[in-house]
Amino acid sequence: MAVINKRTLTKTRRKIRDIDQIKADLLSPKHLAQYKESFAPEDLPDLGKWYCTECAKWFESEVNLVVHRKGKPHRRRVKQLQEEPYTQKEAEAAIGLRTDNERPSQTMESAIDNEITMAT
């Protein structure tokens, strides 16, 4: 399958795993298992026996997988996975936006309540 057109590659139906998902795969076997379960084995190359977790890719044979692991794209991906994945939180931190989940102070709430009761 040789797709060179960028427009085709970026279609949502061709979506491949994101870096943060792969990172989660590496950290938790359950996460990876859930992903693998979402495919029927008969649809995968060689019944889904040869899978490279870092590159989220199935291979036809063990030889192919071993050769791939020695290749440049794989090593590049491993290096890419060493740093923390980018998150929405980081995007917000860049403009100085933090998250505040604290309840407003009780004294202020009660003060407002008093005002309302007095008014009625």
Binding site: E92, I95, L97, R98, T99, D100, N101, R103, P104, I112
Partner: peptide, 10 residues
């Protein structure tokens, strides 16, 4: 000052 507040304020 800027913060994403998830608790509603009256």
């Amino acid at each position: 000052f800027a913060a994403r507040r998830n608790v509603p304020v009256r």
